[in-house]
């Protein structure tokens, strides 16, 4: 028996999901962060974030089509994490690192939190 492993398949699927998001095709939830709105697919959000996993596996909340995040969440930090979910690329700017890390803690994206910690540590001159 042999098996063909398509090594690009996971990234090709993610690329297509991101194209669907940008064209607002089958997006099924609006995330409200302060006054900003972000359209996304629940399945992608819950696959990447412990918080969204908890929300969308809750039978009382899974059919919500809009979710408001804590007003303390920074919309720019959220935008960067949403972009990461759909691209695998995390843009870490020094000016936004604390906002990104706090948002990642809130969204329960533990590996991203660890990465932010390492980035802060490596940027610290002392």
């Amino acid at each position: 028996d042999s098996c063909i492993q398509f090594t690009r398949h996971a990234s090709d699927v993610l690329l297509n999901l991101n194209r669907l998001r940008s064209r607002d095709i089958l997006t099924d939830v609006t995330i409200l962060v302060n006054r900003q709105q972000f359209r996304a697919h629940k399945t992608v959000l819950m696959a990447c974030s412990g918080l969204f996993y908890s929300i969308f596996t809750d039978s009382h909340k899974c059919n919500l089509n809009a979710i408001s995040l804590d007003p303390k969440v920074d919309p720019e930090g959220f935008a960067i994490l949403l972009e990461f979910m759909y691209t695998s690329r995390l843009t870490l700017k020094e000016s936004l690192i604390m906002a990104i890390m706090n948002t990642a803690i809130y969204l329960q994206m533990d590996h991203v939190v660890d990465t932010c910690h390492r980035f802060i540590k490596s940027s610290d001159p002392s």
Partner: peptide, 21 residues
């Protein structure tokens, strides 16, 4: 499955959804 007969295919695996214009 990662058996010894696994062949790696490096090319695109699916059609590409067009970008939004």
């Amino acid at each position: 499955y990662e058996g010894s007969n696994t062949i790696k295919e490096m090319g695109r695996s699916i059609h590409e959804i067009p970008r939004q214009d």
